[in-house]
Amino acid sequence: MSSKDEARRISGALIDPRVIDPRQELVRHDDLAEDELQQVIGVLDAVRRWRESEQRLNLESRTALQLNETDMKALRYIIASMNANVAVTAGALSEHLHVSTASVTKLLDRLERAGHIVRRPHPTDRRAVTVEITPETHRQVRRTMGLQHARRFEVARALSPEEREIVTRFLDDLSATTLISAPPE
């Protein structure tokens, strides 16, 4: 096997405990039959493929709109708020994004300069302004993120109620495994 083929094999096996932890120091797998081990690896590989496709979509959408990740989160929040007929203020965005109001002001300035949002006087508070997404940016976001969300909804909808519960439990349990920092040795 060439070194290039070997490199591809290793790259594709980074979730296989036989490759990443052959001495079973972190991942015990000797109690699984080969077909069970392959199933577990298959599940983790499917999660990896999902994450990569999500990252690609996010990057493509942000690139098309020339946005960073926080900008995109802000636009999605503005769209959801507008759909719910809720006025968006800098304070609401600050809370949603977990950033300072000064950071939100800079973000809004950037989005306004790029033609993604407009600021309008608040309907009931003369001291405040509201933020709305422009129709063109709204159309662009719907063509990318909105269409993808609709497709994902249909995939989840196609599951039986029992399957949805299993998937939800699995993903919640998987989310709970995320470490903020390495545990002490």
Rank of each mutant, 00 (worst) to 15 (best):
M1G: 12
S3N: 05
K4W: 04
E6W: 07
E6I: 14
R8I: 08
R8S: 04
R9Q: 12
R9T: 08
R9K: 13
I10T: 11
I10K: 08
I10W: 02
G12C: 01
I15K: 06
I15N: 09
D16E: 04
D16Y: 00
P17N: 03
R18D: 05
I20F: 05
R23G: 12
Q24Y: 02
E25K: 15
E25C: 11
E25L: 14
L26M: 13
V27Y: 06
V27Q: 00
E34D: 13
D35H: 12
D35K: 14
D35G: 11
D35R: 07
E36W: 00
L37F: 04
L37C: 03
Q38G: 13
Q39I: 09
V40D: 05
G42R: 00
V43R: 03
V43G: 04
A46V: 06
V47A: 09
V47H: 10
V47C: 07
V47M: 08
R49I: 07
R49D: 14
W50P: 08
W50Y: 15
R51D: 12
R51S: 11
R51N: 14
R51W: 11
E54I: 10
E54S: 11
Q55E: 15
R56A: 14
L57G: 03
N58E: 13
L59K: 14
S61I: 06
L65W: 01
L65S: 00
L65D: 01
L67I: 07
L67G: 01
E69Q: 13
K73P: 01
K73V: 08
K73L: 14
A74G: 03
A74D: 00
R76Y: 06
I78V: 15
I78T: 09
I79K: 12
A80S: 14
S81T: 02
M82E: 15
N85S: 15
V86F: 08
V86Q: 09
V88L: 00
G91V: 04
G91M: 00
L93S: 05
S100K: 04
T101V: 11
S103M: 05
S103Y: 07
T105N: 12
T105C: 03
T105A: 12
L107Q: 00
L108M: 10
R110E: 09
E112R: 14
R113D: 10
R113G: 03
R113Q: 14
A114E: 06
G115N: 06
H116C: 10
H116V: 06
V118C: 06
P121A: 05
P121Q: 00
H122I: 01
P123D: 04
T124Q: 13
D125E: 11
D125K: 11
R126C: 04
R127L: 15
A128R: 13
T130Q: 05
E132C: 02
I133D: 00
I133W: 04
I133T: 03
T134W: 07
H138A: 15
R139W: 07
Q140L: 14
V141R: 06
V141Y: 01
R142N: 12
G146F: 00
Q148L: 12
H149F: 15
A150K: 13
F153R: 09
V155Y: 09
A156L: 15
A156C: 05
E162K: 13
R164M: 05
I166L: 04
T168A: 09
T168Y: 10
R169G: 08
D173I: 04
D173S: 09
S175I: 08
T177C: 06
T178E: 10
I180E: 06
I180G: 10
S181R: 14
A182W: 09
P183N: 03
P184A: 13
E185G: 12
